[in-house]
Design a protein around this nucleic acid. Structure first.
Length: 906
DNA sequence: GCTTCGCATGGCC
DNA sequence: GGGCCATGCGAAG
């Protein structure tokens, strides 16, 4: 480590300056250099390094030797190799890594530059320590064990929640979100970024065996997956052609099918043509791939595996897909917080018993938990869903020439959560920081949702998920159609951190093959995931795609694979703000982008790529509308017309799905209220309306206008001149709404003016603004799992704003104090006329319903003649908007039933 | 005698 | 047939 200037790959001499031996043809990797490369060592030095004796062997006479304050052992503290050999004490002095481990408080030194903290190249004896730092020093320590150095350089400061992107993105599948419903786009691997990766993969510690490569024909897709899962089909041509080209992309975990018995590891990455739901990024380098370059020792965590399985233990899907540089670059550009479910485990009797040991699925433990080489393992700090932190001992014991991984000391946590056998716990990871978060889900909730789902399924949605039968099944569908889904709302939420719990989301990945006896019980350990989740999953995928765009000025090559059309790009996709592409009257291609502050839509050139936080002030293409105070060029109706261009299929499906639920809700709301009026104030409601399950946010007893409704069609109809309670309520609410909106509008304009003068001030005023067109994916809004936490940040605001303005429902639950913040584009004039129109429209709808037998019909579906005005109203009215506030006691989980577009068309 | 720890067994896939 | 894992069970404390 006297020099880092030596090119590790160009020189044939061992990187160890003390050693003049020649490297072997496949030099073994040592520590990571500042350049990000790994030092290439001769076999001898590598072995010494692997054994953690490098400094003892080569730095004995060097300066920097210190003594452990605890055990007195001499520790070298003066070189890059020893970065993890000790921990600096606050009071001065150091602890050797062993003593540091015993204390379980100290992590590795956080003062090391990020480039030194990539412990995938560290000797084994350091790895545990660094692994410990992953959890124990979350947020303050070095990069976590699974995280590239400096991946999130901003991690030293706790990331702002608003910087978090609620999407989980699979960069390996770049989908032109505009065509997402019609065509899949598969950008080819970005060549530049990949240049050094094959070598890293092939020669580095992650090197797969030749056997695997031969078998798989692809280093990233192993045969096991191919035969256990259909996810890898069809293969990308590029992958087929070049097996040395490793998969490149953010790993997309999904549950491998062979993870049975309720332990669904969210795992692996596939570069796949079918845009899989991106459930979590797996940025981490896998710590368990402790192979040396020669592969002869089958090192696993620095020691040979007794069973000699070595790397084969870890499937290629666990391998890292990004180079450190890639990650750094990505993180620099998109400092998202990433989160992912690492492990989902249904508690067995043993797990939940007093023994205090929770058996971890081996694959997940090895893939996602810190590498441990000693049976005693290491302590892991885990935060539970309430924000409470626990320390478990992550360890293993030998078992049949294998290992059995357990978390010890879980009893207090289990008891605290009141978990029992059959309940499900998850381990997730927050990024940046790699904080380990434990979520849980009660089995009772699961069974309840199962029943509910079965009821739903009987309504035409197959349990097995043929949600989208009109299009060819993709591998994604094939996999997820087998889903047995559970109600995500029953999942715990990590509310403290304010992040949206992705457990349920990621649970959706966990889609094992269906079994006959797949009942949650002592024997069947698999989760059941309902179709809602499946839909949500697809939506999440859509969301991800919404951020993915083809590189600017790049034209896709359309390839057809097994009947599916894919877009292939030479460059990797980029992330950008979802916009609506359209063609103006002159035939010019344009795009519409929505300001993050005022939510107005601005017309932009089609080739513009916007950052995620684009605002009017950045609108250099239209100076007249470079301010939030400028009026919106688009009227709501035009915007609505654009929607199908964004995502026709999604739009249709969403409409179909939403109509079924939301419209019925709205209609039922009116009907029930009418019922109430008929029965008289204080009258006894029909049994069917006493408690509602239609509105999850509403509890039994809720007397809101929706919840008190009888089933659709059972209530009386109202004439336009009706003065019953229902109609009066509707009118009154609209009146209030309009008045307040008018007031709000003027206030908003004043704010906008003020903001223009102080553009740096964040605009928090409009947080409920509907996001009119969420492109096929940018539809953050459509994620049903979004939890409105108390820490509402920009992103969550966007989530909240997800309600489509085009749905056009009158919110009978409206709470003007909130609703008033809605539509930006509406003018304040003619308010009462709008009110009258809306009311009239409601009456017309009632009339139509009376004659149409109360079929699916939106209450305020825009109709000719009134569409424009109503559109303005409707753009701000959403049932869900009020639901958000209707029951604040309930977790703000509000699944939006909708259908995602299929991922491909034949 | 109880608890904890570590390993072994056997069922399931 | 082999791997994984739930759990039994004995040794140790």
């Amino acid at each position: 480590m006297t020099s880092t200037s030596v090119a590790t790959s160009s020189s044939r001499i061992c990187f160890n300056s003390v050693c003049n031996d020649l490297k072997s043809e496949r030099p073994r990797k040592g520590w990571q250099l500042r350049t990000g490369e790994l030092a290439e060592l001769c076999d001898r030095c590598a072995s010494i390094y692997d054994e953690g004796r490098f400094c003892d062997a080569f730095h004995l006479n060097a300066s920097g030797w210190r003594t452990c304050e605890s055990c007195g052992k001499r520790v070298h503290c003066g070189c890059i190799v020893s970065a993890y050999a000790f921990a600096l004490l606050d009071a001065g002095g150091i602890l050797c890594i062993a003593c540091s481990r015993k204390n379980a408080v100290l992590g590795p030194n956080s003062s090391w530059p990020p480039s030194l903290l990539f412990n995938s190249s560290l000797p084994e004896r350091f790895k545990d320590c660094s692994a410990k730092g992953w959890s124990q020093l979350t947020g303050s320590g070095p990069a976590p064990w699974r995280q590239a150095p400096g991946l999130f350089n901003s991690s030293t400061s706790q990331p702002e929640l608003h910087s978090r992107v609620p999407y989980e993105v699979d960069l390996s599948t770049g989908i032109d979100r505009l065509n997402v419903s019609e065509r899949l786009s598969i950008p080819s691997l970005e060549k530049k970024k990949n240049e050094d990766f094959p070598e890293r993969l092939m020669n580095g510690p992650l090197k797969p065996s030749a056997h695997d490569i031969h078998e798989n024909g692809n280093t990233g897709i192993n045969c096991e997956e191919q035969h256990t899962s259909c996810l890898t089909k069809p293969q990308l041509p590029s992958l087929k052609e070049d097996s040395s080209n490793p998969p490149f992309g953010l790993a997309v975990p999904y549950t491998s099918i062979d993870e049975a018995n309720g332990q669904m590891g969210v795992s692996g990455t596939h570069l796949r043509p079918n845009p899989q739901p991106s459930l979590a990024k797996q940025f981490h380098s896998n710590p368990h791939n402790g192979l040396d370059s020669s592969g002869e020792t089958q090192m696993r965590n620095g020691r040979p595996r007794p069973d000699g399985r070595g790397r084969n233990q870890l499937f290629p899907r666990y391998w890292p897909r990004f180079t450190d540089q890639d990650l750094q670059q990505i993180s620099a550009e998109y400092p998202f917080i990433l989160e992912s479910i690492l492990v989902i485990k249904m508690l067995s009797a043993s797990d939940a018993g007093r023994i205090g040991r929770l058996v971890l699925p081996k694959k997940c433990a090895e893939a996602y938990f810190p590498p441990i080489s000693q049976p005693e393992g290491l302590p892991l700090k885990v935060q539970d869903s309430k924000g409470k932190e626990w320390i478990f001992q992550f360890r293993f014991w030998p078992n049949n020439n294998s290992r059995m991984y357990v978390l010890e000391g879980v009893t207090p946590c289990i008891q605290n959560m009141q978990l029992q056998a059959g309940d499900v716990v998850t381990f997730s990871r927050l990024e940046p920081g790699g904080k380990l978060v434990m979520g849980f889900r009660k089995a009772s909730a699961a069974s309840a949702s199962e029943q509910e789902n079965e009821a739903k399924n009987s309504n035409g949605v197959s349990t097995h998920g043929d949600v989208s039968t009109s299009k060819p099944k993709t591998a994604f569908h094939q996999q997820h159609n087998q889903a047995e889904l559970a109600d995500p709302s029953s999942w715990s939420k990590v509310d403290k951190s304010g992040y949206i719990a992705k457990e349920a989301l990621a649970t959706k990945v966990a889609v094992p093959r269906k079994r006959k006896n797949s009942v949650l019980g002592s024997k069947s350990k698999r989760l059941r995931i309902d179709n809602e989740d499946m839909i949500e999953l697809k939506l999440t995928w859509e969301e991800a795609q919404g951020l993915l765009r083809p590189p600017p000025n790049h034209v896709a090559n359309v390839v057809s694979i097994e009947g599916f059309e894919f877009e292939e790009y030479e460059d990797a996709p980029v992330l950008g703000k979802p916009t609506i592409f359209a063609t103006d009257k002159s035939g010019e291609k344009i795009q519409w982008a929505q300001c993050e502050d005022c939510f107005k839509w601005r017309r932009l050139p089609s080739d513009v790529l916007l950052p995620s936080k684009w605002t009017c002030s950045s609108n250099s293409w239209d100076p007249e509308r470079s301010s939030c105070s400028a009026t919106q060029e688009l009227i709501a109706e035009e915007l609505e017309n654009l929607l199908p261009h964004c995502n026709l299929a999604a739009s249709k499906k969403m409409k179909a799905a939403k109509q079924e639920s939301e419209n019925v809700d709205a209609l039922e709301g009116l009907d029930t209220l009418a019922n109430l009026a008929i029965l008289g104030e204080g009258g006894v409601l029909p049994a069917s309306s006493q408690a509602t399950t239609k509105h999850p946010r509403h509890r039994p007893g809720c007397s809101c206008i929706v919840c008190i409704q009888p089933p659709s069609g059972k209530g009386p109809k109202h004439k336009q001149t009706c003065t019953c309670n229902v109609c009066q309520t509707v009118k009154r609410r609209f009146r209030t709404l309009m008045l307040r909106r008018e007031k709000k509008q003027s206030q908003k304009e004043a704010d906008a003016t003020r903001k223009k003068q102080q553009p740096s001030l964040p605009d928090k005023v409009v947080d409920d603004e509907p996001l009119p067109c969420t492109t096929s994916a940018g539809n953050s809004s459509l994620n049903p799992e979004k939890v409105v936490s108390e820490n509402l940040d920009d992103d969550t605001n966007r989530l909240k704003s997800s309600s489509s303005p085009f749905k056009g429902q009158i919110d009978l639950n409206i709470q003007p104090e909130r609703e008033e913040e809605l539509s930006p584009g509406s003018d304040s004039g003619g308010t009462m006329r709008l009110l009258q129109d809306a009311t009239d429209k409601y009456h017309r709808q009632q009339s139509i319903l009376s004659s149409s037998g109360n079929s699916n019909m939106e209450v305020t579906q825009t109709q000719p003649g009134s569409g424009t005005d109503l559109g303005k109203i409707n753009s701000s009215i959403d049932l869900r908007a009020s639901h958000r506030d209707a029951d604040m006691d309930h977790p703000a989980i509000f699944p939006i039933k909708t259908f995602a577009p299929t991922s491909a068309t034949g």
